[in-house]
Amino acid sequence: MHGSAEDPLIARVAAELRRRPPAPPDFEARVMAAVRRLPPSLPARAWTWLREPRTLAVSPLGGLAAAAGLAALVIVGAWAATRSPAAGGAARVAAAPAAARDTHTLVTFVFMAPGARTVTVAGDFDGWDRVQMPMRRDASGLWTLDVPLPPGRYQYAFVVDGRRFVADPAAPRAVGDDFGQPTSVVTVAAGATRAGRGSL
């Protein structure tokens, strides 16, 4: 048998089933108490923790360290800000095209020293290291070395047998020698190639 919603009997049964039984008088109070006993959500707990006042105990050394650390962060931040493109606009704008042109140029150092056992080049480009840049000798006693350098002005000297500094006779001398030893200068222009030639 199939009933219909329009059937009066079915309608009465449905209405009876939908009717809520009367709740006890303390039902609502008990439900609310149970809800209050549930643990709060994480955001709610965090908000409560943030709003509650705290008492911090800090030793003098700890306070000093915290203050110094904060000061250090401020200093580092200020320093970084001065190097940022926004703060140092002029410097950055000027540096960018220079960097774009900053292609290395092969500079050939040439030095005639048939009697030398070793010859190296020491200068601003290698930290004035006496051994880092050894030159190659050919049968005639001509020493040569190719060094890629970016545009700039560099001071240098030849180091003969590991101890004697000799200026490049084919290159300009540095104005005023600070340490009583001869020093030469090479200027690298963008896109230039230079062959220094000296003799000993």
Partner: peptide
């Protein structure tokens, strides 16, 4: 450049006072 100048002095055997002055 300042470090290079100091290294130049060191490589050439200059004394400390001369290096610092340069």
């Amino acid at each position: 450049p300042l470090v290079n100048k100091a290294l130049e002095g060191a490589s050439k055997g200059a004394d400390g006072a001369r290096i610092v002055a340069a």
